[in-house]
């Protein structure tokens, strides 16, 4: 498996506060990596650094390197708009555009230059199939995305992220606002997407991390405490702090 994304001594500050204190992590192709840890441990901040979304927060700073395809993207000359096309992102709360289902998916490809109607139709169908939503919405592609249920909206957001063919998908607690049935569907989708993508997922749900990820990274107080195969983390962690967290003694 090839490495696709690597962070080196990544430190992130909000003003004076150091939220992430030097994290080295490597992510490979076709894999799911779970970032776990108690609230405020820096895992979401770390995730948002990977597509430079922290840039949008006033007062945030970042040092260290993030290597994608041999290029350090934490450099001033990085064009974040180009970078973000290769990295999809989905949030805790579904945020479909206030547009039709079709327009939500076609928006990105259109912006990046796809004009042909048939090609757009293909992209829309393909993205929706990958996100396991096609069968539920194929007869109402031109109705508002806001008419979908929460779980459907979230899968629509995944489909929207996939529409521009990213290599990396960042998921920030994508199922934590959803009911168990929708959560199961999202997890199923993630496992299928693993075949084509590098997925990084932040989750508070230990079972979820165990079910879907190949590797797990445990964060605490802005530090990476332990990183290993998910199986190892959940059965025989090396660090006693990890042991305590996964067995639910705190967090």
């Amino acid at each position: 498996m090839t490495d696709i994304l690597r962070t080196e001594e990544l430190k992130i500050y909000y003003g004076q506060n150091e939220a992430v204190k030097g994290v080295d992590l490597t992510f490979t192709e076709n894999s799911v990596t779970a970032l776990i840890g108690p609230s405020g441990c820096g895992k979401s901040t770390f995730l948002r650094a990977l597509n430079r979304m922290n840039d949008e927060i006033p007062g945030s700073r970042m040092t260290g390197n993030i290597w994608i395809d041999g290029k350090n993207i934490n450099a001033p000359d990085t064009d974040v708009t180009v970078l973000r096309q290769n990295i999809g992102m989905v949030w805790q709360r579904p945020n479909p555009f206030y547009k039709s289902i079709y327009a939500n998916i076609a928006f990105g490809p259109k912006y990046h230059g796809v004009r042909n109607k048939a090609e757009l139709d293909n992209i829309v169908e393909d993205s929706l199939r990958k996100a396991a939503l096609w069968d539920e919405v194929k007869d109402r592609l031109h109705t508002s995305a806001l008419s979908l249920s929460g779980g459907q909206q979230q899968r629509l957001c995944i489909a929207r992220a996939l529409s521009v063919q990213p290599k990396i998908l960042l998921l920030d607690e994508p199922a934590s606002a959803l009911d168990p049935v929708s959560t199961a569907k999202i997890e199923e989708t993630i496992l299928q997407l693993k075949e084509q993508l590098c997925i990084v997922i932040v989750t508070h749900n230990m079972q979820q991390a165990a079910r879907i990820s190949g590797h797990t990274a445990y964060f605490y107080m802005g530090r990476l405490v332990e990183y290993d195969k998910t199986e190892k983390i959940f059965t025989n962690p090396s660090d006693p702090m990890t042991q305590e967290y996964i067995s639910g003694r705190f967090g």
Partner: peptide
């Protein structure tokens, strides 16, 4: 909603495109 803008940013849209195509219609 702020999330609309975030979604646009994460897709690699320019600020101007986000304003005209995502925020303005709403």
């Amino acid at each position: 909603p702020r999330e609309q803008k975030e979604a646009g940013l994460a897709m690699g849209l320019s600020r101007w495109k986000i304003i005209t195509s995502i925020l303005l219609p709403v």
